[in-house]
Structures are given as C-alpha cells and as structure tokens.
Computed example of a mutant assay.
Amino acid sequence: MNALATVLITGASSGIGAIYAQRFARRGHDLVLVARDKDRLDALALRLHEEHGVAVQVHQADLTDAADLSALETRLREDHRIGVLINNAGIAQSGGFVQQSAEAIDKLVSLNIVALTRLAATVAPRFAQSGSGSIVNIGSVVGFAPEFGMTVYGATKAFVLFLSQGLHLELSPKGVYVQAVLPAATRTEIWERAGIDLNTIPEVMDVEELVDAALLGFDRREPVTIPPLHAEGRWDALDQARQGLLSDIRQAHAAERYQP
C-alpha cells in the first residue's frame, strides 16, 4: 500500500498538469488526474502506471460546469487519501478588454477563480483538521503586470496570488502548506487554445523546466515560487514595500493631501 499522499491534479491532460503528474508519479505518489479530455487522461494514466507502478485514476470533468465541479468537490471531501491538490486548470485571454465577450469573461472567471477557490475551500477544512496537506495554486506573473494587456486574465491571476498568500497565513499554523506558483510564458497548449501565436513571444520556458523549478520551491516550502525571476531580492523588496505601505495607512482621517 502506498503510504504517500495521493495527488489530485486539475488540467492534467497536457502541459503543466501532465508534467506535474509525471514528476509526482516518479516520486511514488498515486494520482487522480482531472481534465475534460478523457482519452488523453486514459493514455497518460496507463503510461504512468506502467512506468512507475503507481495507481492512477482518471476523473473527467469540465470545471466550468456546475455539476462536474460539485462532483469533484465531493470526491475531494470524501477521499482522505488525497493529500495534495494541484490547482492547475486554467485558460488564457486573447485580445484586449473591449474585445472580450460576456461569455468569454464568464468562462475565464469560472475556471481561473471560482473552480480553483472552491476546490481549495473543499480540502482546506480536512487538511487543517488532520494537520497536513498541500495546496498548490498555479498563477502567473501577469497577475502583477497590467502592462502586459491581458486585463481579465491578469486579474484572475492576481486573485490567485492574493488567495494563496491569505491561505498561507491562515493555514500554515495548522500544518497545511500553500504554494503559489507564478510562471511567465511557458510552452503549453494554453496559448493555442486562446488564439495566441506562441512564436510572437520572444522568450518561452519549457514546461519541464517550469515544473521542476516549481517542485524545488514545493520541497523548500516556499509560499510563492516564481521560476522565471532571476533576482530573488526583487520579490522580497516588493513584499517589504507592500508591508511598509500598510504601516503608513491611517484609517481615522484622510491623508493631508486630501484635506480641504
């Protein structure tokens, strides 16, 4: 019997999710792979079982569908073998804000924010009660870069970062590890699905390198892992500046520059 926690990965049929599945299978973890494309999930599950001898279950789901999301929540709530949640499923945005349809915005927010939050909220009480477990949320550096022009997508990823930081503060004292992983441009199918030509992006990281770096951060228990950030001090300085800003906020009165 496998004593390691089972890892549930959303968006596991390709890209970042599939590489996470390979890496955790290599480490000896049983897996639950979640995505819409069952054929690709089945093929990946069979290969990982044959190569690593781990148990791999497939859970077909469209996480923008209310019934599918609810069914996955039930599984996460009831299957106590699942001790690691990789919240990877997401979609990108092509075009500016004025070009987004209501349907496109709804789908983007439903997958990148609502599904991710609900799945984290489903496992958090169980993890906190047991004093163990890990939640990994895949964000993006676009979440703090409005200059990149992907306004709705960036806003969803800013939410993922804030949520992860808040969960870290709330859950880490209870023994639960929460990690936000912030990639930059990574060579996956998300671009093609969004109608974006990857060849127009000058620098793109290979997905294997991205996941391996993210897992180093996971092993080190980093709250925020930014694989493409080469000057680590930049993130520390940003966080210190944020805390300094908070210390200068006085709630009782408006600042002098706003006084009549």
Rank of each mutant, 00 (worst) to 15 (best):
P228K: 00
A184K: 02
T6V: 09
E78Q: 15
G154A: 07
N199G: 11
R81F: 10
P227W: 06
Q243C: 09
V58F: 05
G95A: 11
N112H: 09
L31W: 11
G11L: 03
T200M: 06
Q99V: 02
G154Q: 02
D79I: 12
G166D: 12
A184S: 15
A214G: 08
P202H: 03
V176N: 11
I196W: 07
R220I: 05
L4A: 03
A61E: 06
A92K: 03
D30V: 07
A231H: 14
Q251F: 15
A21C: 08
P146F: 04
P202N: 02
N87D: 07
R187P: 03
E51C: 07
G217K: 12
A92E: 09
D65L: 05
Y177L: 14
D248G: 06
E209N: 04
E203V: 08
N2A: 08
L76Y: 08
V7P: 03
D212K: 07
A67C: 01
D68V: 02
G244D: 15
L182V: 02
A3C: 01
A145N: 14
R81M: 09
E222L: 13
V142G: 02
A12L: 10
Y153N: 02
S132K: 10
V34A: 01
A45P: 05
G133I: 15
G244R: 12
Q259P: 00
V98Q: 12
V109P: 00
H253T: 15
G175C: 08
I86M: 10
V54L: 03
R193Q: 15
V160I: 14
Q240S: 13
R221C: 07
F218Y: 15
V54Y: 04
A180I: 08
P146R: 04
G143T: 06
Q243N: 14
L63N: 06
E147D: 11
A43E: 13
L163T: 11
